[in-house]
Amino acid sequence: MKLGAMKPQRRNRLLLILGLVGGLGLALTFVLKALNSNINLFYTPVQVIAGEVPIGARVRAGGMVEAGSIRRSDGSLEVAFIVSDLAGAAFEIRYTGILPDLFREGQGVVATGTLSQDGVFFAEEILAKHDEKYMPPEVAMALDATRQDPLQP
């Protein structure tokens, strides 16, 4: 379809709409860029360590639960663990309450709570984040045995 072959009236309407959508798209891009940090659901370990998280304010922070870092207390629901970004940055989360079913080592979590002066994050709520991979339990067990991931060529 050639633009020149269209009736002028229709071509003008098309150009008007394209201009409208293009202009609004550009405006929206700038708005989203400006609000970028507000749209992120949680602070990353790097941001927590760098002091970008306001102390004492109610915020969300997240990362991967480090293997072997989970410490549970006897006789209460208190739990402490280290959350990292798998690239060096890490911080400690403390929480009292029931953890979601998917909470485990190597899984992502998003915690809502406050960061204390000494860098410990006191969570009021823990949400589990999972990745986009799905597989039957037998496959997962077989993979654990061989430590190879067929979905990751």
């Binding site: 749209i39 659901l41 998917l102 709520e125």
Partner: peptide, 12 residues
């Protein structure tokens, strides 16, 4: 609710 632990979260 059963997986994440919440019905709703204001993520993008």
């Amino acid at each position: 609710k059963p997986m994440w632990g919440t019905y709703w979260v204001w993520d993008a």
